[in-house]
Nucleic acid binder design. Structure first.
Length: 426
RNA sequence: GGAGGGAUGGGAGAGUGGCUAAAUCCACCAGACUGUAAAUCUGGCGCCCGACGGGCUACGCAGGUUCGAAUCCUGCUCCCUCCA
């Protein structure tokens, strides 16, 4: 019995501490867990932004843990709130989505969602089930329960109000709709990032007003993105998507600042606490190369969203291409017609063996290594390109444009990690 | 309903008639350095061209004044503030 309860204790610790910023109210939550009754775990999403990244994974992993303890996830498709847009985003009003877009986005989201969350222990509900029949009377009844002052308590609203930024009326509706979801599905626990605190608390209040037991709120820390500073988000481009190819997940993880490693370990892996403590110590003593710690993290993450084989393959690829600066073996081929290249200019003449002398700026743009010829020219001027491993040392007299001799199968590289293989069509 | 202020490149933010493809900062890209990353230094950061040059498009939208407009004028759209 000692062992059993000890196990129980460590399990609880893991659920309550790892990757959790705050639980409101923790004591109530523990109490409800202890009754042994399956809880309804609410998790909502707006089918507007579709890609799930590691920032979301923190919460989804938590859901999974609780599912494994026998509880049930209720996934809410926010087909109404999606029209409003969550205030934590900047854009005031979002364009209306068509029913079809919503369905598509939702499908994409769920495909990723169930990579982490157990589908068999999940019930999926659409907001339109209850909001579809909402009347103006219902809306007035709902809004009548709250005051502007209460809503201005929310950080985001308060800040924007203070700094004279617009706040759309519909944005005030957002927390209300989300709160009503909790009533509609009678949720026991709701999950969200710390920036969701206000919304989750409104749900708690509303449930109580409507005679339900108020939900517990699980607030997850906001995961910093790959820049190590701002929270991970798609719009900032600092995210690692769980649907990305192994080499991308691996590479992006390796590009994290060293200081981010421990939070990532803590929030996104099952590496035990005592092992994390060892890592922390080793790092502070400088007795370990941080790169090795980070490599392990990258492996863990790839394995989680793909599998162990993919993780090792991604690691080998990283070691070859980034550390040893060798070529990856999966270089994308781009087929171009000889004629299209030859047209690059007077100077592009045909040499023997089908080799071509070409302008690198234009070629890089055609290969997709530069977004425009102009950018290609700038990059070339800065020695960003190599062709078959050689720096470019031919320049057009006068203009100074870089030239290169290429042939079918030539590999053009930009920087340290972008490669394309040129294939020629006659 | 009235009065006033504002809209500039991915973001912030200068710029009140030619010196402005638009200061500066951040982000981003490349080079150097390197143990991944960071830091640092250097350069770049509108498009097109037979390119030391030439052309085109650009400062909310549409017109206008002028040899010349991000800058002046008119109308419009949107945002903010104050009064009612």
């Amino acid at each position: 019995m000692n062992t059993a309860s000890a196990q129980d204790e460590s399990m609880m610790r893991r659920v309550l501490r790892r990757g959790v910023s705050e639980i409101i109210v923790e004591s109530e939550f523990v109490e409800r867990i202890r009754t042994g009754k399956p809880l309804r775990l609410k998790m909502g999403f707006d089918p507007s932004a579709t890609d799930i990244h590691l920032g979301h994974a923190v919460g989804l992993r938590k859901l999974r843990q609780l599912q494994d303890m026998g509880h049930k996830v209720v996934l809410i498709v926010g087909d109404w709130t999606a029209q409003i847009g969550d205030p934590s985003g900047r854009s005031a009003t979002r364009p209306m989505l068509t029913a079809e877009q919503v369905r598509e986005n939702a499908a994409t989201y769920m495909a990723q969602f169930f990579k982490i969350v157990d589908k068999d222990r999940t019930e999926t509900r659409w907001q339109s089930e209850w909001f579809g029949n909402f009347s103006l009377a219902d809306v007035i009844g709902l809004t009548g329960r709250f005051t502007v002052a209460q809503f201005l308590a929310r950080d985001d609203f308060a800040n924007r109000f203070k700094s004279n930024q617009p706040i759309a009326i519909t944005e005030l509706l957002y927390p209300l709709l989300q709160a009503y979801d909790s009533v509609a599905i009678e949720s026991d626990v709701e999950f969200g990032g710390t920036d969701q605190m206000f919304n989750l608390l409104v749900g708690r209040d509303l449930q109580q007003m409507m005679g339900q037991t108020p939900q517990q709120c699980f607030l997850m820390p906001l995961l910093p993105g790959t820049d190590g500073v701002q929270k991970m988000s798609k719009s900032l481009g600092n995210y690692i998507g769980i649907d990305e190819p192994p080499s991308d997940i691996y590479g992006k993880t390796m590009s994290l600042p060293d200081t981010m490693m421990l939070p990532y370990y803590e929030y996104l892996t099952d590496v035990p606490d005592d092992e994390l403590a060892e890592i922390r110590q080793a790092m502070s003593r400088d007795s370990v190369n941080p790169m090795d710690i980070k490599k392990r993290l990258a492996r863990e993450l790839v394995a989680q969203f793909h599998d162990a084989d993919a993780a090792h393959a991604a690691e080998r690829r990283f070691e070859r291409t980034v550390q040893q600066r060798e070529l990856p073996n999966d270089i994308q081929e781009v087929w171009l017609r000889r004629n299209d290249i030859r047209q690059a200019g007077r100077v592009s003449i045909i040499l023997q063996n089908g080799e071509l002398l070409v302008y690198v700026d234009r070629l890089s743009s055609q290969l997709g290594l530069a977004s425009s010829v102009s950018e290609g020219r700038r990059l070339a001027a800065q020695d960003a390109f190599t062709v078959d491993g050689n720096r470019l040392n031919i320049q057009e007299p006068g203009s100074g444009r870089k030239l290169a001799v290429v042939k079918d199968g030539s590999i053009i590289q930009r920087g340290s990690r972008l490669h394309k293989r040129l294939r020629l069509l006659d």
